[in-house]
């Protein structure tokens, strides 16, 4: 099977600091792939480079068989390559429903229609509501997004990105700031997602990682330290060494909660 996403020697430098350094990575269609690594390992930078928010310094991003390294972010998103942000990025001055509808109306190709009121585009509204329901925000559609709690904003981001009809979603620490109940809802939602949807998840909560992921890649100082199944990763000496001294060591090897 050809990978949906393939990175070849992907490198991204901030001046003299090389945050992502020669990363090779393949993600197969339908795979649930976790990316873990200590703080500052370059996970968010990798996501930004793959999504096209930041240009790559060197290397190639292949998506769905095509070289997208030079494509602007919006074009990659239109091809189905979507991401969420480590720090919530929503439309604070818009209603909660509008946030999700913005994603839906682009997919429905009505984002530039101005001849009718938005609520009369029934299919778009219904689809946006369905996504709000799936993350448990059904009753909050009319509220301004600024009125949502931190955890609810994380949920809203999940709804937005799924509403954009992606083929690959990169979640950057989706459960950071969520309550235990919200985290459980998120994990259950991901488990219910159609199996052809490919996911790449950065996650510090290793319970969530080992529950959701088929494969795990460990990033350390911008480089791939190990890549394999959850069992292989737990047993890997290099991973153990990289995490030594980090407060999360125990979580990784015992599966405990931080």
């Amino acid at each position: 099977m050809t990978p949906l996403l393939e990175l070849r020697g992907l490198t991204r430098a901030y001046g003299s600091l090389t945050a992502v350094s020669g990363v090779d990575l393949s993600v197969l269609p339908g795979e649930r792939h976790a990316l873990i690594g200590p703080n500052g390992a370059g996970k968010s930078t990798l996501f930004a480079t793959v999504a096209g928010t930041l240009p790559a310094t060197a290397g190639t991003v292949l998506f769905d068989g095509a070289d997208v390294t030079a494509l602007p972010e919006a074009k990659r998103a239109r091809r189905g390559l979507l991401r969420t942000y480590q720090h919530s990025s929503v439309f604070l001055g818009c209603s909660v429903l509008d946030n999700v509808a913005l994603a839906v109306q682009r997919v429905h190709r009505v984002a530039h229609r101005f001849d009718r009121a938005a609520r009369r585009f029934r299919r778009t509204e219904a689809e946006a509501l369905r996504h709000l329901e799936s993350v448990g925000l059904a009753g909050r559609g009319a509220d301004p997004a600024a009125a949502l709690s931190h955890g609810e904003r994380r949920q809203l981001e999940v709804a937005m990105v799924l509403a954009a009809e992606p083929s690959l979603v990169m979640f950057d620490e989706p459960t950071a700031g969520m309550s235990a109940a919200e985290t459980e809802r998120f994990a259950a939602l991901v488990e219910r997602l159609p199996s052809e949807l490919t996911l790449l998840i950065v996650e510090h909560d290793l319970d969530v990682v080992f529950r959701l992921a088929d494969r795990v890649t460990v990033l350390h100082l911008g480089q791939v330290l190990a890549s394999g199944t959850a069992e292989q990763i737990r047993a890997d000496d290099a991973v153990r060494a990289a995490y030594l001294g980090s407060a999360r060591t125990d979580d990784l090897f015992t599966g405990g909660t931080p």
């Binding site: 919006a74 929503v90 439309f91 913005l102 682009r106």
Partner: peptide, 12 residues
């Protein structure tokens, strides 16, 4: 108006 970068990430 609210978040241009996010619009681009959504494909706008």
């Amino acid at each position: 108006r609210d978040n241009e970068a996010r619009m681009r990430a959504l494909g706008y």
